[in-house]
Write a protein that binds this DNA or RNA. Structure first.
Lengths: 223, 223
DNA sequence: TAGATTGTTAATCGATTAACAATC
DNA sequence: TAGATTGTTAATCGATTAACAATC
């Protein structure tokens, strides 16, 4: 029946959810009990209307005349974001970037536990980085399935990234967080989030250059 | 007059430009001379219409019946993205992440030259990482102005990120690329691009969890 | 020339904002 | 109760897609 149909939540909404969650976490820390959509919008730079629309994709979490209970909404958002269960991660590539991510406490704090790093380099295999062991890449399929790892982070060079994604697709992995500078493809049922750092830098560069671009267009259009 | 008015280019368009640029670079490598919007769209997963609309924000680069000249369009996009002049960068924070970014050849290849890293740690100051010297953070204002650095990368811990941004705002820096897990604010005229890694991970987590969320909503709506 | 493909206008689609009855 | 603020419908705005005359 029609009431069962869940409309697809747009990516724009999804990308705002972590910001709501973070803000509510901060309020919780300050022992704030309730918050209105207006107040949230004022501080986060969204309209109250948008926040209410976003939240109502997932349920009715507020109360007329009162607003939202901070703790309750925080927990609901955590559930929506999949933070109510612990995630097990491995990092593929124990270079500088892999090591940087391994030492990044924020992930653990949100329930993403890094079990191991993997590398091809014999000098690294067997070592440990901030208490996290570096294993041989050849053992990764066994390790993931044995330990019910659900997220793999790819921090290998571009050349090997797709190959790693292919290997991962043979396991029970559920998500791939890719830092290599290509958009890797994975098997069906595996969600991929590509972090394209160069794209981000080029976006910055564009915006720094924007006024010059506009001048150029204006000049062309006049001539 | 009205023809002078340049309509604001939306962020959605801007974020697609690096993908066009990259694709054209690959075609150029393969000595492909011309490409149609249809062909580009087919491979990149956009509609031909969208690509033509996007490009026409910046000028008329194509030719009826022919399409686009790969080399010309590649160069035009480079100009639009601010890649026609070399950018000088410094990295603030010479920890693992700073070191990882310092060793990332893709940036240099696109004209982003990393001149130095900066840190507070006396063990790191004076050393060099892949040929790039690590300087004392106290010298950063002088260094940036003296060397006409236009982009600063922030890879310091959360606690110090805003402070660094404030210091940078006192210099002639034009852009800040921030990897600390807060949205830093900078002085007027300074463009900030925040790379919020946790947000990216939570987006992945949401999508991995999506089917479960929908079930939950459906159940609620039935009861 | 005929075929292809652009630049651009019009139509559609989706996301954001505004408005307001419902209700705590 | 009166005031506040939700959930939700309607209006607006913006972005994407379709269509097609212009033209290489």
């Amino acid at each position: 029946m029609a009431s069962d149909e869940i409309k697809k939540v747009s990516l724009a909404v999804i990308r705002r959810l972590p910001k709501y969650h973070k803000f509510l976490g901060e309020l919780l820390q300050k022992n704030v009990e309730r918050v209105s959509s207006h107040e949230m919008g004022r501080i986060l730079g969204f309209t109250a209307s948008q926040i209410r629309q976003d939240l109502n994709n997932f349920g009715e979490f507020g109360q007329q005349g009162y607003g939202y209970n901070v703790e309750q909404l925080y927990n609901e958002l955590a559930k929506i974001l999949g933070l109510n269960t612990e995630h097990k991660m491995v990092i593929v590539g124990a270079g500088k970037l892999g090591q940087a991510l391994a030492g990044y406490g924020d992930f653990e704090r949100h329930g993403f536990k890094i079990l191991a790093l993997f590398d091809v380099n014999p000098d690294l295999i067997g070592k440990s980085i901030r208490g996290i062991p570096v294993h041989d890449i050849n053992d990764i399929i066994y390790f993931i399935n044995e330990n019910e790892v659900d997220i793999a982070v790819i921090t290998v060079p571009r050349e090997n990234a797709q190959e790693v994604a292919d290997t991962l697709s043979k396991t029970m992995i559920k998500g791939i967080w890719n830092f290599a500078p290509i958009e890797v493809k994975a098997g069906p049922g595996v969600i991929v989030e590509n972090v394209l750092l160069l794209d981000s830098l080029l976006t910055l560069s564009y915006r720094m250059n924007e006024s010059r671009v506009k001048e150029r267009i204006a000049t062309q259009k006049n001539s």
